[in-house]
């Protein structure tokens, strides 16, 4: 386990100086939209919160963290604060495999595909799409989180945004619950799968659903994802712990203890694998951590977009 104080100091410094937990220039993180011909304006603004896009870099960073966890070298971590965030971010970006970045972009393209097929009208303005700061909140750096949330909220409010569609549970929770409470910013926030109107015929395939904690418990949205899949003809099997009582994938522990994250992830994979069905989830962190634990996991967006082919 790393010293929480050291990890928080690094992440908070990165967010304060670059708006990103890893200090990676946004142009290197968020490029998926360029081939999508998305309108800038719409009744609702798509805000990804950059979580899907950041996962490839999280994978790289946690691989290195896992290598030195509990090793003597971990004592030198505090000295990394002397490295400018953009420099360390650039380094991280360079060693992150392009294939992982393409995969992350693919999920977002599939989400857009599903929303378009549903007739959902939305706009996208990449300059307004920022990381929500949720990791600082989870780690207890309230001052850092509130400062960042106010910066992000001010940009959205300044652009006249009132309605937002989100793609991951962490950003959804931050914008829907935390921003009104701590950043004096209230938006109408909906997860992308809440308003889908798709149809298809996949009778016969049963999916094993892993509800992310923020969707299943904090936001009580388990029914919405099952309804979207049900409309495409899929049947959903619930793991022993699901919905309001879902069990964690381990992902939130990654920054402090990759070993702990792996242990929790392996337990969850074991619980999900009992039915032998394809495992589906709807959170980039869950997706990454369950895959790392050895599961063959599919993102909800892949299933929805794939289902459209025969719809």
């Amino acid at each position: 386990m790393y010293e929480p104080k050291d990890i928080i100091a690094i992440l908070a410094n990165n967010v304060r100086k670059t708006m990103s937990p890893f200090g990676i220039p946004k142009s290197m993180v968020n490029g998926w939209w360029k081939e999508e011909s998305l309108p800038r304006n719409g009744e609702t603004l798509l805000v990804t919160g950059l979580m899907y896009q950041l996962v490839p870099f999280i994978e790289t960073a946690t691989t290195w963290l896992a290598r030195y966890e509990d090793a003597k070298w971990a004592e030198y971590l505090p000295y990394s604060r002397f490295v400018p965030p953009r420099l360390s971010g650039l380094g991280l970006a360079m060693i992150t495999p392009a294939e992982a970045k393409r995969k992350a972009a693919g999920h977002l393209k599939n989400i857009v595909k599903a929303m378009r097929a549903s007739g959902r009208r939305f706009g996208y303005q990449p300059e307004l799409d920022e990381y929500s700061g949720i990791l600082l909140y989870d780690l207890g750096d309230q001052e850092g989180f509130v400062r960042h949330a106010k910066r992000v909220a001010a940009r959205l409010k300044g652009a006249g945004v009132t309605s937002i569609v989100t793609v991951d549970p962490h950003t959804t929770y931050a914008l829907k619950v935390l921003y009104p409470k701590y950043a004096d910013a209230s938006f109408e926030v909906r997860a992308y799968f809440e308003d889908l109107n798709l149809s298809g015929a996949h009778a016969g395939e049963t999916l094993s659903i892993h509800d992310p904690c923020f969707y299943g418990r904090y936001l009580e949205l388990s029914g919405a994802s099952r309804k979207a899949l049900g409309n495409l003809g899929y049947a959903c099997a619930d793991a022993r712990r699901s919905g309001l009582f879902t069990s964690c994938c381990g992902g939130p522990a990654e920054s402090i203890s990759p070993k702990l994250a792996s242990r929790i992830g392996a337990k969850r994979v074991e619980a999900l694998g009992g039915s032998g069905e394809r495992i589906v989830t709807m959170c980039p962190i869950c997706l990454h951590n369950l895959e790392k634990a050895g599961a063959d996991v599919t993102d909800l967006s892949t299933v929805l977009a794939g289902g459209l082919k025969t719809a």
């Binding site: 386990m1 010293e3 929480p4 989870d138 780690l139 207890g140 904690c213 418990r217 904090y218 712990r241 309001l244 009582f245 879902t246 069990s247 964690c248 381990g250 939130p252 522990a253 402090i256 203890s257 702990l260 929790i264």
Partner: peptide, 17 residues
């Protein structure tokens, strides 16, 4: 024992139950 606090996943299952 403060390091233990950061092992918490903030998953909320304890609060739910």
């Amino acid at each position: 024992e403060s390091r233990e606090l950061w092992r918490c996943l903030h998953c909320g299952l304890c609060t739910q139950t």
